[in-house]
Amino acid sequence: MSIQTPIRGLRSFCVAAKCLSFKHAASQLYLTPSAVSHQIKQLEEQLGTELFIRGTRSITLSAMGKQFYQSVSPIIHELESTIIEFTQRTSNKTIVIALPEFFASELFIPKLKQWSEQYPEINLQLEMMSVGEEASPLADLSIVLSSGQPNASIVNELFPMRYIPACNPQVFEQFNQSPQSLNQLPLILHRSRPWAWHQWAELANIDNFDPQQIIQLDSMYGIARAAQQGMGVALIPLPISQAWFDEKSLVPLFDCALDTKDRYFLIQHENLNNRPELTLFSQWVNQTFRTN
């Protein structure tokens, strides 16, 4: 078949093949029955075969018509779905942003009302990521936690991370404020930073640091939640967990914080610079979450 075959002819054929009526197909396509018949006739001429057996008051698919419909129908359906998706995305100005779950729950979503009220015509689609997980290739923007500068076209640093020992108020009341007492309590940290407690102890000049139990979790939210439930003392990331301290769900044990190279970055992909809504959203993210 020639590559010049118009898409509308294939679509008219699929609709007519489904309802077995040029009249009903024309109604669905907002065309006249003669226009549908003409488009299908052109398609048959290009294929060199009849797709329909035409009766006085009815039509049926020929053997070749059935085979052609089975091959073409899924392609036309997928094409229509893609066109609808892109049309909706263009008209609605939807932005897809990938971001870590803890960042989303503790910082992004609580501030999202500001954006929604300022730009109600721009939709957002959030895709949550676990620590270390790569962002979806379909994302327009990404927020990532990294110890180094991400390899991307446009990168803006938002803020660095530091970690502070904390527990719930009940454990705090039982704690005698001696650094050595940490050896008798379960110590909680993220499994991606298995030596973080030892690094903190060295920074705090704690001698004979030998914890009885260390619990590693793969979720920042899980770490904060475990400490809040009284499981032990956790290295809590700041400033991202500040709300837990403001609400008195967690209490800091020491002033000494472990500063790291970990930083949150906003990444914009190079092939999307011509979308003004992305510029607006990037500016809002930077103004809202960036610290100097």
Rank of each mutant, 00 (worst) to 15 (best):
M231C: 09
Q88W: 11
Q170R: 08
I83P: 00
P150W: 11
F265T: 03
I84E: 11
Q170K: 10
L31F: 10
I53C: 08
I109D: 03
V233K: 00
W197Y: 06
L238N: 05
A135P: 02
R11D: 03
I215C: 06
K248F: 08
L124K: 04
Q184C: 03
I3H: 07
P239V: 11
L187M: 11
Q174M: 12
A201T: 09
H269V: 05
R290G: 08
P33N: 03
A17W: 02
Q268E: 14
Q4E: 14
V251G: 00
S73C: 09
T82G: 00
P211Y: 13
P237G: 07
E117R: 09
G65Y: 05
S62H: 08
C14N: 03
V36Y: 01
W195Q: 10
E173D: 14
G222R: 04
R162D: 11
S116I: 14
N176S: 15
N205P: 01
T94H: 00
L99M: 15
L217I: 13
E134N: 14
K41M: 04
V144E: 03
S219V: 06
L126Q: 05
E277G: 06
P120H: 13
A25H: 01
L235S: 02
S192I: 12
Y163H: 09
D262V: 05
F52V: 08
F209K: 02
E277W: 15
I83M: 07
L141G: 04
G222Q: 09
A243Y: 06
S249M: 08
A139Q: 06
Q67F: 06
T260F: 06
P74L: 10
F86Q: 12
E85L: 11
I122T: 13
L253R: 01
R225P: 00
R191C: 12
P137F: 11
P165M: 01
R54T: 14
D207W: 10
R11F: 10
M64K: 14
P165H: 04
I267Y: 07
N168E: 13
N286C: 15
Q287S: 15
S73P: 02
